[in-house]
């Protein structure tokens, strides 16, 4: 959950703009997957899941077509258990048709080091064999530590390592907003 923060922050994307960014990603997905007929949207908890649902809703609004949506938790695939300790495990729900032979689009809020996506690819590999895998993120803040890039980016935001990007969504946080904040001591996301 988002902590109410007293720290000074800068709003990068405000409420209505966020909806436009999601719309743009939805359009791009339709364009680049030939109508998204074999697509599956898999959100990475926590905020990737509502984002994946929004994308599906928008695709449905544009094309009157239902893209299956699921959740793929990567907590148990993280490589930092020793470093960061156990985290709460999020939900994993695959759409009834599964992922075999489909175009899986992983959805997350922020792309940073790439480690989360790496874990998601590992998890996906244990679940099935998609035809192709793509990545959609609301924000790419840079500082990659792995050779990973996103196929769909809502907004590129250049950041410093001492900053963090916080995404708030109505579904999880009661409001739509993307903020740039000073990173808390000892960690950032």
């Amino acid at each position: 959950m988002a902590q109410p923060t007293a720290a000074p922050h800068k709003v990068i994307i405000a409420g209505p703009d966020l909806a436009r960014v999601v719309d743009r990603i939805a359009h791009q997905i339709l364009e680049r997957t030939g109508g998204a007929r074999d697509a599956v949207l898999l959100g990475i908890p926590t905020r990737g899941v509502p984002l994946a649902r929004r994308l599906a809703t928008r695709i449905h609004a544009f094309e009157d077509f239902e893209v299956p949506v699921g959740a793929l938790d990567i907590t148990l695939y993280r490589d930092d258990l020793r470093l960061r300790g156990a985290r709460a495990v999020g939900p994993t729900q695959l759409p009834p048709g599964g992922v075999d032979g489909r175009s899986v689009i992983l959805v997350d809020d922020v792309l940073f080091s790439g480690r989360t996506v790496r874990a998601a690819l590992d998890a996906l590999g244990d679940i099935g064999r998609p035809r192709l895998v793509q990545l959609a993120v609301l924000v790419d803040r840079g500082h990659r530590e792995l050779p990973i890039r996103a196929d769909y980016v809502g907004k590129n935001i250049p950041t410093a390592l001492r900053e963090m990007v916080r995404v708030l969504l109505v579904e999880t946080d009661g409001t739509d907003e993307v903020r740039l904040e000073p990173a808390p001591m000892g960690g950032q996301s």
Binding site: D73, L76, Y77, R78, L81, A88, V89, G90, P91, T92, Q93, L94, D122, D126, I127
Partner: peptide, 20 residues
């Protein structure tokens, strides 16, 4: 809760194994 998530994570999978 964690046990339920673990169940969920490996339900209906061929590879009943997590790298955790």
């Amino acid at each position: 809760d964690t046990a339920a998530r673990m169940d969920e994570a490996i339900a209906d999978r061929e590879v009943k194994k997590l790298p955790t």
